[in-house]
């Protein structure tokens, strides 16, 4: 379905030195499967997602979608071919409402599905449909609205970048149920979830671990989780003074 062929990406830093942040990735994502990507911060997960969406361009390698070489295509063209990326940090818009964004994601969506989509991410349609996706929303609300657009679009390849970040436990469970119900059982769709959340990882068919711009492990959640558990918990404690340790257990 989505094939990464020897993908590398080099960026320059302030000192004018070049650094390879994605290093020779080869992988084929299949249709009908849910993939998890995890690994330490700075490992290159978001960069890989942006390479697939066309937000970043690789310095080497090719990307194929359903055997078509999409490497030279723009973001818009890739979106039209059926790729969507739910941002780790979604931008805010003054004057565009939640309804506007979902309508752009899914032109012509009917009222019933519009409302259902919002409920799926734990937002009450009455309260949110006409809200500005602007400075008045919290980080967690932004993440849920971002997920709502992704759900509404029903793309053939959906990449979700830490959908659980800043979202309450109850909504995470809800999201997991929606991903299982809508994506995992659909043989046409490929889903890639970048996550540190144990429950999210456990619904994946396969988990990839990224570190220093490389895929260092792949396996089932059961195989991978014991290896990464300690490191993730330890990182989370460091960053959030322990608050999140509870969440990933």
């Amino acid at each position: 379905m989505l094939k990464l062929n020897d993908i590398s990406m080099v960026v320059g830093n302030d000192q004018g030195e070049n650094r390879e942040i994605i290093r020779g990735i080869n992988f084929e994502f299949e249709a009908g499967k849910v993939y998890g990507i995890t690994g330490p911060n700075g490992g290159g997960k978001t960069s890989l997602a942006k390479l697939i969406m066309g937000i970043y361009m690789p310095s080497q390698g090719r990307i194929y979608l359903q055997d078509k070489d999409i490497t030279p295509l723009s973001i818009s063209e890739r979106a039209q071919l059926g790729i969507i990326y739910a941002f780790q940090q979604p931008p805010r818009f003054k004057g565009l409402t939640v309804k506007d964004l979902i309508n752009i994601a899914r032109p012509g969506i009917d009222n019933l599905h519009l409302r259902m989509t919002l409920r799926d991410v734990g937002l009450c349609p009455e309260d949110y449909l006409d809200r500005d996706v602007g400075p008045g929303l919290s980080g967690g609300e932004m993440k849920r609205i971002e997920m709502a657009q992704t759900l509404a679009r029903e793309a053939v390849v959906s990449i979700m970048d830490e959908p659980e970040a800043g979202v309450d436990l109850w909504t995470i469970q809800k999201l997991i149920a929606v991903i299982v119900g809508r994506y995992k059982k659909n043989p046409r769709l490929t889903t890639i979830i970048i996550t540190h959340n144990e429950n999210m990882l456990h619904i994946c068919d396969e988990v990839l671990v990224m570190e220093s711009g490389m895929l260092v492990h792949r396996g089932t959640p059961e195989e991978i989780w014991p290896h990464i558990k300690d490191e993730i918990e330890c990182k989370m404690k460091e960053q959030c003074s322990g608050d999140v340790a509870y969440e990933i257990r």
Partner: peptide
């Protein structure tokens, strides 16, 4: 980038 990733030019 966000709107283009939703299919707009």
């Amino acid at each position: 980038i966000k709107l283009m990733s939703l299919g707009l030019t």
